[in-house]
Design a protein around this nucleic acid. Structure first.
Lengths: 136, 136
DNA sequence: ATATAATTTGTAATAATTCTAAATTATATT
DNA sequence: AATATAATTTAGAATTATTACAAATTATAT
């Protein structure tokens, strides 16, 4: 059993078989420690301080690539914006309709549903929406 | 116990306390019988045949209002587009990554999670993504 | 060190959605 | 039944997140 959480961003990129570049390492490192589930815009604002040549287009490219490689998760907030999550493994999310914060919910990956017989399930998403404890 | 499924579109609008208009009745009637989880564009294409003055802007206005009134459900497909669902009650959805079809999954509304203590849960969403039985 | 294929970058283009203001319509009231 | 008024619809413009494009740069294999 590989303890994936001990791997560096560079090692994760190598393990996934994609090129190791400055924007990819910087963005993946940021997502691995950030817990706010940022958008590309927010990632760009945070990471451009370290990588001065970084462009917003690259953030879109890199997050797409990291997502395809299975290194980060992609969420849709209720208003249809993409958010990224560097945390491994299945979990649900709660979206606060007041402060727009997003937080993680531990939950089981139960997909033993009759309607899914014959389907090739690739991703399972469990999300709740409402007013978070801080705003409530 | 009210058997809600026997109510007409007009009665549902009245019961929700919002004005009964031609676009609202037509769109709600369409969503009550359609099982494809259409976008506003698709609703517009289908309903404009019956309501010749209908505009796309009205479809956006009406679906938003129906959603706020709790008469329809709103889904986000993996590419971030809004889809509407006239079916009452909680259920999950499966999004096929090949043909982009969306179908319903019966499942329990289990939201007894530690992380949600103190939160006011308004909506629960359970979704799976992959290749549907037809495409598989 | 070099070749080359992938990646990054800045900008332009796209497309779903929202905004705006005028025209129309549903409902309550007389 | 006619009228007032507040809500809704409409058409088109504006917005905004995301994608497309083509040139410059860079990672990796040789």
């Amino acid at each position: 059993m590989i303890i994936q959480s001990s791997l560096s961003a560079q090692d994760r990129l190598r393990e996934a078989g994609i090129r190791v570049t400055v924007p990819r390492v910087s963005i993946l490192e940021f997502l691995m420690k950030d817990k706010t589930h940022p958008t590309c815009e927010a990632i760009y604002d945070a990471v451009k301080n370290n990588v001065d040549t970084l462009s917003l287009a690259s953030v879109y490219n890199v997050t797409e690539k990291l997502y395809e490689a299975g290194l980060v998760r992609r969420l849709l907030s209720p208003d249809g914006e993409y958010h990224y999550d560097g945390v491994y493994g299945f979990h649900g999310h709660f979206f606060c309709n007041k402060c727009n914060s997003i937080f993680d919910i531990k939950c089981d990956k139960n997909i033993e549903y009759e309607e899914l017989k014959g389907a090739q399930v690739q991703t399972v998403s469990f999300s709740t929406y409402g007013i978070c404890p801080k705003c409530n």
